[in-house]
Simulated scan of single mutants.
Amino acid sequence: MKTVVKKILGATLVSGAVAMAAVPVQAETLTFGIVPQQSAKKLARLWTPIFKHLSKKTGTTIRFATAQNIPTFEKRMRAGEYDVAYMNPYHYTVFSQKPGYDAIARQKDKRIKGIVVVRKDSPLKTLAELDQKKLAFPSPAAFAASVLPRAKMEQEGMNIEPKYVSSHDSVYLSVSKGFFVAGGGVMRTFNNTTPEVREQLRVLWSTPTYTPHAIAVHPRVKPETVAKLKQALLEMNTDPSGQSLLKTINFKGLELAENGDWDDVRGLNIRLLDNLLAQ
């Protein structure tokens, strides 16, 4: 009887071990947050194929994420909700402090500059003519699209009324429809907006250039995962499918980045998100 019981128990243990071995190991998953310069639907359409490509190359599942507007994105960044994030230059100088995002890549051979757009048929010719006007911006802390133009206007003694409309595309659409005489954006999103909107607009003024958006990782992401992600991002420059995907977001390529690359932005001493940083 004891022998039978042992055999039965042995068979149970063996079958259990086989069953455990048959259970697949769960693949690591990363949430990649994209700053909502454009609508969530549009961003998902542009970035999801890129994340599928990177998932395949790294063996890590990378999922698209964003927020309904930039202030919400900023709160989620401060809370460390994204494992990886694509953020504007000012955001990087803030969230590299808390919760400690670390830059790994940025757009290759690129400098970011803000623009102020008006309708193509607008009589306005100079930035000074926007004095006393109501202007559209994506959000208070949108670096090139809002912070830089408003700083210049303040420096010139201009008094404008800023209205925040949640995204770059919303700025372009509202200006094209005549809801505002002008609005702030950046060249990449301007070139990437719908042709029927873009063709109704022209660039009135541009800011000086700065280090562009950062791709940065949260400190909790394992070093070996970060290394694989860096390699996969760089390989997009030479892989035909990667090159095609980069073109869809108007990137000529990617290059590795480090924290000090954004010292030019830190030198502006922008304090807009100090309260959020202190939380």
Rank of each mutant, 00 (worst) to 15 (best):
P208H: 05
T207Q: 13
A214V: 00
E235W: 03
N237S: 06
T209C: 09
N237G: 03
Q200N: 13
M236H: 04
V221H: 05
A227Y: 00
A214G: 11
P208R: 00
K230C: 05
K222F: 03
E235D: 15
S206T: 15
H218V: 11
L201A: 00
H213S: 14
R198A: 10
V226W: 05
W205L: 10
E196D: 06
H218Y: 14
K228Q: 07
H213L: 05
L201T: 01
H218D: 13
V221F: 02
P195C: 03
V221I: 06
H213W: 12
L233Y: 03
V197W: 05
A216V: 01
L201R: 00
M236P: 06
I215H: 12
A232K: 04
N237K: 01
R220S: 13
P212S: 11
N237P: 00
E224F: 08
A227E: 07
V221Q: 10
E235R: 10
T207H: 12
W205N: 06
K230V: 00
Q231W: 03
A214Q: 07
Y210V: 04
Q200I: 00
Y210A: 08
V226M: 10
Q231H: 13
A214W: 08
L234F: 02
A227G: 02
A227F: 03
V203D: 04
T194G: 01
V203G: 08
R202M: 08
T225Q: 14
V203I: 15
T225N: 02
V226E: 12
V221N: 12
P195L: 12
T225H: 09
R198Y: 04
H213R: 06
I215Q: 10
H218F: 15
K222Y: 05
Y210K: 07
L201E: 02
V217G: 01
K228I: 01
L234D: 13
K222C: 04
K230H: 07
Q231F: 07
